[in-house]
Design a binder for these strands. Structure first.
Lengths: 158, 158
DNA sequence: CAACAAACTCAAAGCTATTCTCAATAATAA
DNA sequence: TTATTATTGAGAATAGCTTTGAGTTTGTTG
């Protein structure tokens, strides 16, 4: 078991940019780097940024790749990774949160969501960001985040 | 009781544009115009379009104005009014649906939502609509609705 | 006005996403 | 290596919103 983890670690540090900041951030807080946390993070790195998974989907995917991680742990891990700043949490309208890799290169973006299958595409738009900023200012609100959710039906589901 | 309803009806038809189409739509389907349905619709007309209530809020307001309508009925009525096309259903992110009067004069609009108290302001933006339309087209999606939800904190809650 | 299905109320039950519990396990620091 | 203590797994519990059921009331139509 010890050997397996070492392998996992060295593998990760070769291929995953996020592993070492993760380790540091965790240890700073007396937290631990566990195989489960790595598995979740690796999953997001493998599917790449621009993909959005719910806790349930993360769970499914890990189970399918014969990496069983309990759902409770996934919820805990997702929260942790969001706090650390490695994942970004979206709140889509059709119930439930989704998560995506937060990389520095990814600017603020919006989502095109298929209401049938949940497929999500993202796009950027300065105009949209500007509109949100202006609306908040006019009403005296303190802006947190503005996201355009375009509800639509994707080609496969039409 | 019969008298009360007649009064309500004639009152409604003088002041509420929506009552007669409501009656027709209902009867067409063998459905009935009940005082409860009128009360819900009147509430939305009184607060005017541009206000968004959850089922729970509709319930509260009716109870306060000493018009007790059960919560179950409110849920059923809201669904009905949406189906008929008199109300528009929003799905905001922080859980739960909200409803607003759908009038022909109200163009597509977006929402500025206080994440603390739920206060919601609306605004319009052609740029935003255009951005949604373009995104859907590029990805081959069939557009249903695009709404910009600006999550923010309102002056009272800061 | 009477008959009858629709709709109402109240309360209980359902969802569904998330959190909690706690014994068992395992990552870390010394 | 060992002690310490964070973390895990599994399922039960929660929370909030929503729906359903049973029994009663009430629009509506002829």
């Amino acid at each position: 078991m010890r050997i397996a983890l070492s392998l996992l670690l060295s593998f990760s540090s070769q291929y995953n940019v996020l592993t070492s900041p993760l380790v540091e951030d965790l240890h700073k807080d007396g937290k631990r780097l566990t195989p489960q946390r790595l598995k979740v993070l690796n999953l997001f790195e493998n599917i790449g940024s621009g993909n959005h998974l719910s806790a349930e989907e993360v769970h499914e995917k890990l189970v399918k790749s014969s990496s069983k991680v309990s759902l409770a742990t996934i919820y805990r891990t997702l929260r942790l990774l969001v706090k650390i700043g490695l994942l970004h949490e979206l709140e889509l309208s059709e119930g439930g949160h989704r998560y995506e890799l937060l990389s520095n290169e990814t600017p603020d973006h919006h989502h095109l969501i298929c209401i049938r299958c949940g497929r999500t595409e993202e796009f950027e738009s300065d105009e949209v960001l500007r509109a949100g900023k202006i609306a908040a200012k006019i009403n005296g609100f303190k802006l947190i985040e503005s996201s355009l959710n375009v509800r639509a039906i994707c080609p496969k589901c039409i």
